[in-house]
């Protein structure tokens, strides 16, 4: 188990390094840096001015060196105090001695040019907001998906199975930006006539989550992810129901309900667990769409702001978080699979 863990973690670190380097490369393309120079300096900079601005702020060093500095393994070349460089390692408080290394590994995530604040702090706050959303999405999505999947898979080919399977296909075919629009029109506009819920979730951040402002965003996100999990659960349940030990139990005279609940369910839930964990990268896309549509200022909204405004440090920070979440959920799903499934013993 330990070697398995070590190998998985090693692969994970390598993947994380590759991914962050790709993001670093793509955010530090020459046109992006030129745009940064013009937005930080002045719009009417000549090419030579841009060149000297980049030079002064340390952007003319080789890409790998800058990546190392951002990561925190290569010493950061602090600009001289008397130079008018604007981009510095914003690690130290005024008057404090600036550290030699100031990268992500040391906890210095850089400075956002849009929000004029440290990236680490901004991201932390927004993740908390998105965490609340995700929590409610999971609370709604997972039990419903498992219920639909188990009900559909326990009698394969029955009418319940057909209608529930059609329903779950329909939900996977409805992306968030379609179902969100439909929900708002039906439940939150003057046209639908039902003004049960609010069409925005902005108020959820200041005045707390209420049934009125959170139902639609949560439902929108839960619906799209639900179909996929439900179909996986159904397939797994249908497979388990044909197993020998289920037939034995049936022949022994165990009631159908007890067969499903006591014998089949536990084995049928192994596969969906992995699927739920691997849903997280998909959910990130959903988070971005839903937060934009319902104007909820969380992590997804932040990502859109960072990308739209060429905020390099912030975008890098967001990417690190996204990549981290994806890789950790993959690891958990691997470990969980081994742990839940007694037939697999990894030495």
């Amino acid at each position: 188990m330990t070697t398995f863990l070590l190998r998985r973690v090693g692969g994970m670190v390598l993947t994380a390094l590759c991914l962050t380097f790709v993001v670093f490369f793509l955010t530090n393309l020459d046109p992006n840096l030129e745009k940064l120079a013009k937005s930080e300096g002045s719009v009417r900079m000549s090419d030579a001015d841009v060149e000297s601005w980049l030079d002064k702020n340390g952007f003319s060093q080789p890409l790998l060196v800058r990546y190392g500095q951002w990561l925190g393994v290569v010493p950061y070349k602090h600009p001289a105090p008397d130079s008018d460089a604007t981009v510095t390692c914003r690690a130290a408080e005024p008057g404090e001695e600036p550290p030699t290394f100031c990268g992500v590994l040391e906890g210095y995530w850089g400075y956002s040019t849009v929000f004029k604040d440290r990236v680490g702090g901004i991201i932390g706050g927004k993740i908390a907001a998105t965490g609340v959303l995700m929590f409610w999405v999971m609370v709604v999505m997972v039990p419903m998906a498992l219920l639909i999947g188990v009900l559909a898979g326990m009698r394969e080919g029955s009418r319940t199975d057909r209608s529930l399977s059609t329903f779950s296909i329909a939900t996977t075919a409805t992306p968030e930006y379609v179902s969100g629009v439909l929900f708002i029109v039906i439940f939150a506009s003057s046209v639908g006539g039902l003004r049960w819920f609010k069409g925005t979730a902005t108020s959820a951040i200041d005045s707390g989550v209420t049934f009125e402002n959170f139902t639609l965003p949560v439902l929108t996100m839960a619906l799209y992810g639900m179909g996929y999990i439900a179909r996986m659960t159904r397939a797994s349940m249908a497979e388990v129901m044909t197993a020998q030990y289920i037939r034995t139990a049936r022949l022994k005279g165990v009631r159908f309900r007890d067969v499903v609940l006591k014998h089949a369910l536990r084995n049928a839930l192994i596969a969906p667990f992995t699927v739920i964990m691997l849903q997280f990268p998909w959910l990130l896309t959903g988070v971005v769409i839903v937060e934009t549509l319902f104007n909820y200022k969380g992590f997804g909204w932040l990502l859109v702001q960072a990308a739209g405004n060429n905020d390099i440090d912030l975008l890098l920070g967001c990417s690190v978080v996204a990549v981290f979440v994806v890789l950790v959920t993959q690891l958990i799903s691997d470990i969980g699979y081994v742990y839940l499934n007694p037939r697999i013993r990894v030495r």
Partner: peptide, 19 residues
């Protein structure tokens, strides 16, 4: 492992077309 939306925001940009 790349979140799709992030990849799109990085790849589909006018700056990208310039390079």
């Amino acid at each position: 492992a790349f979140p799709v939306i992030l990849l799109f925001y990085l790849l589909v940009t006018p700056e990208m077309r310039e390079t």
